[in-house]
Amino acid sequence: MGDVFKALADSTRRTILDELAEKDGQSLFEICTRLVMRHNSTLTRQAISQHLAVLEDADLVRSERQGRTKIHHLNTEPLRSIAERWPS
């Protein structure tokens, strides 16, 4: 669960999750484009790829290969686990 909190601690990673929540199943190119167009991001593709790797390590993002393209999907299960741990 610590990986989830670490992943969520960064505002860029939260923005990536927001973008995947709005439109699931995006390639790195699509995510980069949305971050530039909607959030005026100046991050490189490599930096965004590293953020995606942290999100994948925390199981907040899952990816699949479609040919030469890696498609990223939001996984909300770790967030549900947090909510279930401390119910209101």
Score class of each variant (00 low, 15 high):
Leu20Glu: 06
Leu20Met: 12
Leu20Gly: 10
Ala21Gln: 06
Glu22Cys: 03
Glu22Asp: 12
Glu22Ile: 10
Asp24Leu: 02
Gln26Phe: 07
Ser27Gly: 14
Leu28Tyr: 08
Phe29Cys: 01
Phe29Arg: 15
Phe29Pro: 00
Phe29Glu: 15
Phe29Tyr: 10
Glu30Cys: 08
Glu30Val: 01
Glu30Arg: 14
Glu30Lys: 12
Ile31Arg: 06
Ile31Phe: 02
Cys32Leu: 05
Cys32Pro: 00
Thr33His: 11
Thr33Lys: 12
Thr33Gln: 14
Arg34Thr: 07
Arg34Cys: 08
Arg34Pro: 00
Leu35Asp: 02
Val36Asn: 02
Val36Thr: 10
Met37Leu: 14
Met37Pro: 00
Arg38Cys: 04
His39Ser: 03
His39Asn: 14
His39Ile: 01
Asn40Tyr: 09
Ser41Pro: 03
Ser41Thr: 12
Ser41Met: 02
Ser41Ile: 01
Ser41Asn: 05
Thr42Pro: 00
Thr42Met: 10
Leu43Val: 02
Thr44Asn: 00
Arg45His: 07
Gln46Ser: 07
Ala47Arg: 15
Ala47Lys: 14
Ile48Lys: 06
Ile48Pro: 03
Ser49His: 11
Gln50His: 04
Gln50Arg: 15
Gln50Asp: 09
His51Met: 05
His51Pro: 03
His51Leu: 00
Leu52Met: 14
Leu52His: 06
Leu52Phe: 07
Ala53Tyr: 08
Ala53Phe: 04
Val54Leu: 01
Val54Gly: 00
Leu55Met: 07
Leu55Glu: 07
Glu56Val: 09
Asp57Gln: 15
Asp57Phe: 05
